[in-house]
Design a protein around this nucleic acid. Structure first.
Lengths: 225, 225
DNA sequence: CTAACATGTATTGTTAACAATTAATGATGA
DNA sequence: TCATCATTAATTGTTAACAATACATGTTAG
């Protein structure tokens, strides 16, 4: 289980972004990170390079690393890519889901609803992301799974920047109907519902809101440790 | 035009892989690379981390970096992902192609045919890859374009390992008909032809061939400079 | 009071030296 | 002759010090 330090950093940053503890634009200084993870700057640098390769972090020469701030055009591209990938995932997942998969998704929906009523935004976002990622795992394609992992991460940044209403995450009843179609093995319906679901998510964006101000670093990273 | 050293290394390796000058399994030592590009090892390490994030290079701790050797399962996943992405690209590209785009694709097909008759495998692979990447550019989605870039790279490695017949690259007449559909603005036909094209490519694989032996490094990287 | 400028500080980028691990070589013994 | 083991060489991993760049503060002139 001993993981490499570089992966620790990468996963900590990804988790923090996935739960919107790290908003777009936040600076990721090398010394703060190497202090937090008690390692040298070389490992931090490699981790930042890995994150930059996933377009989750922006690397400005001589300036440092910043959490990516997606443009409206980028938002459009990301959601179009999600529809492309998640429709294929839906097609593959139909008829492949085990009873454990269905059970996991059902409880996941409940967890998300609970988090929403509790006002626990990080938990809500985490659950919502887990729902989509579990579907990808059911589909059994590691390439699509990794692509979707990156896209959901970037979606979180986009929603954090441009979410118009309070609808910053998925509608719970849509998730419900998706599991119904999955359990019934109705591939066509599953694809249709997934596409609609993603379009609803994208429709909830408005691109006139100013970007939020970046906040401090230690609090954000350590609350998910 | 002054590019960062790290990007130089990344692009050189990617180009070499795209033209099959770097076969799967080749070791990418840090000192040889830093000598070739006359830089320090830190830059090489960052470049290798970036390549590893694209699953084009495998990073084994304490062993070094190696050109990825895709498994048969990975090959299946890659081609399924390509169908998912390139079908969406086809839908977007239909009706968006300019006359310059069409002209480029036509001459590209000629170049590829010429390279094939000349027996110039690198040029043939380069042209074939450029064809698919140009379609992605026409579609105008940077996310899908980057995903496809990674997938075509990995496809080249897969074809280098598992190509059964001499059909290690695309059938030229299929490219021809794809351009016809694109020029006619027939989206449905374009999607259909693209899907068939990719299935033909995948059908040409056989997974009983042993992997080829790795070769030296300097010759492979410098012949494409 | 504002704007441009100069200084000092902090951060990133680079380099070299050292430690640790792995691969390779050759010797030894069955 | 082959397998095992010790030694040696080469490569990766780590660390620290230094250089260069950008940022922030405070100053000065208009």
């Amino acid at each position: 289980m001993s993981e490499l330090v570089e992966d620790l950093i990468v996963n900590a940053v990804l988790d923090a972004i996935a739960e919107q503890r790290l908003p777009a634009g936040t600076k990721l200084g090398e010394q703060p990170l190497s202090d937090l993870f008690s390692c040298n700057r070389a490992n931090v640098r490699r981790a930042l390079a890995t994150l930059a390769a996933q377009h989750v972090v922006e690397l400005r020469p001589n300036r440092g690393a910043f959490v990516m701030t997606p443009s409206p055009q980028e938002a459009r591209d990301v959601f179009q890519a999600r529809r492309a990938i998640e429709s294929t995932i839906a097609r593959q997942a139909a008829g492949r889901a085990s009873v454990e998969d269905i059970a996991f998704l059902r409880t996941n929906i409940q967890d998300e609803a609970q988090a929403r009523t509790d006002g626990d935004k990080p938990a809500e976002l985490r659950a919502s992301r887990q729902f989509h990622m579990r579907l990808a795992q059911i589909a059994g394609n590691l390439v699509l799974e990794r692509f979707l992992s990156e896209l959901t991460m970037r979606s979180t940044l986009i929603l954090g920047l441009y979410s118009a209403t309070g609808s910053s995450s998925c509608a719970a009843d849509e998730h419900d109907r998706i599991v119904d179609a999955l359990e019934a093995g109705d591939g066509g319906e599953l694809i249709r519902l997934t596409d609609i679901h993603l379009r609803h998510l994208e429709a909830g964006l408005n691109f006139d809101a100013p970007p939020a101000a970046p906040m401090s670093l230690r609090d954000q990273l350590l609350s998910g440790g």
